[in-house]
Amino acid sequence: MTKEQAILQAIALTLAQALVLLAVSPAIVGLIRKVKARFQCRQGARVFQPYADLAKLFRKQPVVSTTTSWIFTATPYILFASTLTAGLLVPAFASQMPLNFAGNIIALVYLFALGTFFLILAGLDAGSPFGGMGSSREAIVASLTEPAMIMSIFAIALTAGSTNLSTIVHKTALLEGIVTDPSPHLMALAALFIVALAETGRVPVDNPATHLELTMIHEAMLLEYSGRYLALIEWASAMKLLVFLSLIANVFAPWGIATTLTPMALSIGLAVYLAKVAGLAVLIGTIECMFAKLRLFRVTDLLGVAFILALLGLLFFYILRG
């Protein structure tokens, strides 16, 4: 294969992954809502309803308060771009991402943090009391999830011997090296799952189905947004959820992912990926129906558990190698 062909292939793979992320993420949100509706004995909206919602929002005219600064209008684009970039670092259906030279697993954490940071600023920017409240809560949750996420990621990186996500997933998929040690992975998985629920504003931490409630976190920051800005933020949140699900699915159970770039392997990889992500979405929907939202001051307990689990994963790496 010539150099030009390799470059073209890399660009095609990156574009394909971006398309999959953009196209699948609203359906995942719709699937979770459908699962919740079925558990509550409701018919529920179609799984594809979020696409229609996004299309409607893109057609509407955005209303921007005159008291806001450039941060308010820039945030949706920054959030969308940082989330999409983060999504391109996580292998979805092919284990070797062409962009893996651009950032490792730590870059992924801070790409998410960049979006969260701007969203917090935007919540404060319009000067509404709800926005400030949501921002301060989001800052609490974000500062507590970050150490847990970094620790669980270190536990994974230690067992795989690399912080590069593509290397981790590729090695685990091919069962190379010491990555088959289950105990640190189990702890890191539990920690990362709690972190994923907290970061994407799912039920034990935040309720995504509420508007205008005193307990809301994520929605409180978005209250001032409308039109295409709201659509971009909603889409970015859906993508963030999908990226976290891909991270969990592919770091801990990457089997089935395409380790070579043949059309056959890629199509199997895509089908397996969609099945895994849909399975996790059903799991999240089930959890949202089984548990009540925690009180805000109990959230620290849950995130403390996540941090300790990640720490244990790190410790087990040393303890259990004997």
Binding site: T180, D181, P182, S183, L186, M187, A190, D301, L302, G304, V305, I308, L309, L312, F316, L320, G322
Partner: peptide, 21 residues
């Protein structure tokens, strides 16, 4: 076999932390 036993013990410790929390 060793890894499976380790995994079982790790699960025991995991439930321990759940009881504490």
């Amino acid at each position: 076999g060793t890894q499976l036993v380790d995994l079982g013990s790790a699960l025991l410790l995991l439930t321990c932390f759940a009881i504490v929390a």
